[in-house]
Design a binder for these strands. Structure first.
Lengths: 245, 245
DNA sequence: TCTCGAAATTAACCTGCGTCATCACGATTG
DNA sequence: CAATCGTGATGACGCAGGTTAATTTCGAGA
């Protein structure tokens, strides 16, 4: 099922089979997208939202000179622009980073769900609030961590999220991003991200080669980035021991 | 009415009189709080949410060494921790900055609303997503602006939000924050915020004295901070000409 | 196997902001 | 009135990270 990974392993919001079926029935179309494709521009009026099935997507704000700040990175299972359902117009752009497969859910379907299934509505609301919690962790990262800490924090977060999606074993994962992308995430330049990667490599914390990440010392990396996964609302059963998928 | 300022002048989510009455009826208590009072700690399990009636509040994350990053500032009319209704546990602390008056809404009331009034539920959801949009603007601010730009952007944002609350005439407002607070918002040190304030004063953009802000050149200040208020979802009628309240 | 373009890497230089220290001012309290 | 405290203001100095510009590596395609 296309929604298999949605809200998987999140604390207190397990989807009932009936709810998952309803959501699945709301999908109007499954589409594949090329890498680096912008699917939503800030200001567009939207009548559908996008559930990410495979690949990596991002949301970002460009400044006046074209410098880009990523405000979110999405992994499979994320309902990328579910917030467009209440908002209708977004304040930022949405794009694929890698090739991606997405499921389209028309807002008319979400409207019906909202009127018929209040508990499922609450879970959808919850999903958008996890994204907000991640925004806050990113604010902490940008406001209070140095360059090495920022990259370490991001890699720990992404690792944890990919573990939930079954796409990391807790140490190795394919990250569809290059060093310039990391720079746009961490508020740095690509040159300095390169220096950071070298430092992480030399300290034997983490290696990054052609968008493949291997975390050599998870605890040390988390400490360096002051990473505490509480904000991801991971199911208690999994918080201790990640799934060996 | 206590909820008068809630969702006021926001695009596409005008509360019906009946909805406002229902929300008002959900208030269990109105309370006054002393300045610098922490009302929620990260990890607390919550069974109520807080609507801010008067005063300034903040949400923040402290790092390991005690350095603080503010992730939100709230003005009257904001439903400060409405996101605790779906989330139940927060990832950050919530506190007053100034003395404040708040209305308490038990989650049992929100639960009832969720089951009875789907359209009001959507508007509550919308309110939490505006906070998320503000988080994203803050990410842009921290990731892509220099010190002067960050402070300018924050002052423009806060001015716009206080205009909506009827607490700024568009040029002057009481900001219940000192320079150290601004530093914790903008990811700077209080020393450097002081340098920034001097620069803004000398460039005749803005003056700040004992938490009173006067914007001398609104357009120039907005340009300096690359401030575009689209993310505040202000009602089109007001976007052009702020209310003269 | 060769070519080409994207990405990674590195060096040299510079600056914005942090750090540390001190001082001034006004409000509050004993 | 003196003492204290919160807040703002300022100077000297150092460094993390930006800027610019080459150079190298590597995978994809011909």
């Amino acid at each position: 099922m296309f929604t298999d990974r949605f809200l998987r392993f999140r604390r207190g919001v397990k989807l009932e089979p009936e709810e998952r079926r309803r959501l699945e029935a709301g999908i109007s179309e499954v589409r594949t997208l090329a890498p680096r494709t912008t699917i939503v521009k800030a200001g567009d009026v939207l009548s559908q939202s996008t559930l990410l099935i495979e690949g990596i997507m991002s949301r970002f704000i460009d400044d006046r000179r074209g410098l880009r700040q990523l405000v979110a990175v999405h992994v499979p299972g994320d309902f990328v622009d579910l917030h467009a359902f209440p908002l209708k117009v977004l304040d930022h752009d949405v794009a694929t980073m890698t090739a991606a497969t997405v499921a389209i859910v028309p807002h008319a379907q979400l409207d019906a769900i909202m009127h018929e299934m209040p508990e499922l509505t609450r879970k959808l609301w919850f999903a958008t609030l996890i994204d907000a919690a991640i925004h806050r962790a990113w604010l902490f990262r940008l406001g209070r961590l140095d360059a090495i800490g920022r990259v370490a924090h991001f890699l720990c977060e992404t690792n944890a999220r990919l573990v939930l999606a079954g796409l990391s074993d807790g140490r190795r994962f394919a990250l569809g991003l290059n060093q310039t992308d990391l720079a746009e995430i961490c508020g740095l330049t690509n040159v300095h991200v390169n220096r950071v990667m070298r430092a992480l490599r030399e300290e034997r914390l983490c290696v990054f080669r052609s968008s493949l990440v291997e975390i050599l010392a998870p605890e040390k990396l988390a400490a360096r980035g002051q990473f505490d996964p509480a904000y991801l609302y991971i199911d208690d059963a999994l918080a201790e021991r990640p799934p060996s998928v």
